[in-house]
Design a protein around this nucleic acid. Sequence first.
DNA 1: TCAAAACATTGATATATGTCAATGTCCTGC
DNA 2: GCAGGACATTGACATATATCAATGTTTTGA
Lengths: 193, 193
Amino acid sequence: MYEVFFRKFNEKIQLTEEEVTFVKQYLTPKKLRKKQYLLQEGDICRNICIVEKGALRAYILDEHGEEHITAFALEGWTMGDLSSFIKEEPAMLNIDALEDCELVLISKSAYIELLKVMPKFETYIRILMTDAYMALQKNMTNMISLSLEERYKAFIRMYPNIVQRVPQHMIASHMGLSPETLSRLRSRLNSRK
Amino acid sequence: MYEVFFRKFNEKIQLTEEEVTFVKQYLTPKKLRKKQYLLQEGDICRNICIVEKGALRAYILDEHGEEHITAFALEGWTMGDLSSFIKEEPAMLNIDALEDCELVLISKSAYIELLKVMPKFETYIRILMTDAYMALQKNMTNMISLSLEERYKAFIRMYPNIVQRVPQHMIASHMGLSPETLSRLRSRLNSRK
DNA sequence: TCAAAACATTGATATATGTCAATGTCCTGC
DNA sequence: GCAGGACATTGACATATATCAATGTTTTGA
């Protein structure tokens, strides 16, 4: 149980068997069926989740009620509305399952307790946050400095699994494009090679 | 010396006088004149910096050589190309001074050593990264879900000091707009009230 | 197994923003 | 103190992308 979670953990920080057992006490498994919600806008995000299996998306609704996908999460990725989790404020994000999912949840109290009693956990979180920040930064600089075509090609290169498993209009939404524009972009790219 | 740095630190984690003295050993002061560079694209970012006084900007050059400002930093803010600092890869960002600056630098070796020997430093960095991630996320969701006008009003509300101290065309660049478009947006807002 | 929904594509048109250019003002450094 | 540059504004025009609509295909669920 929790194989993916601990595989990811061990990539950053080695844990002994006892430590694994110890951490497991603080984790909760959760299954989610396709289209079910993990979090809805306005609720407080009570858990950080790690995807063991399946796929999630996070999206925000704009003033016209349009969905804008802010993130996908596949196996091994972390998902949640971090601001809501940390500050215990209403979430801006909606998170739902794109496929049937198996998740690992860390509650706020578990998070706080683990940070307090287990330095290796704090180190792991520090690294996780650093990596997440760098990834977001990278996305932002790509968004700013690349042409549409280059952005799409970079996305395919970076996240080939997402392109395979997620409908195209959601990728368009994630890139801030209409489905039509992405479709035309793709046909331009195909005709060119 | 390093007043701003330790004020910020103490807002998150209380330090004893001895701890302050200890941390000071790892810090280096640096002055920068307006328009001088702290970091240039292609170089490796050897230091994380905290602004004691003055203002910095970070920008990236796109394929046409156009500048796109990715961040500003005023007193108390942290600045650097984090990916370059952590991975010791060539930086994508250019960082220069918008005003004469006084900075505090933390070198990579100081960063690693402090993380190793001082749990409070690791906790501080963990919180810093978490906050930075949340702020970037917030910017991204604003970018996605708000109209231009709302984005500009949100920016003014959030960073009134930047609006006062930074030329308008740089704010346009930071918002991903041409200077003309921001100018027209502002005149629209003014005529309306 | 079939009907309905979800999805991708393509065309016609609308619109927001960028680009180019001209003008005037205000800094700023020599 | 003045000249040149940086900056903001405004107008005319170009262009990329959104929007609306129609069509065909694939997936899904009863």
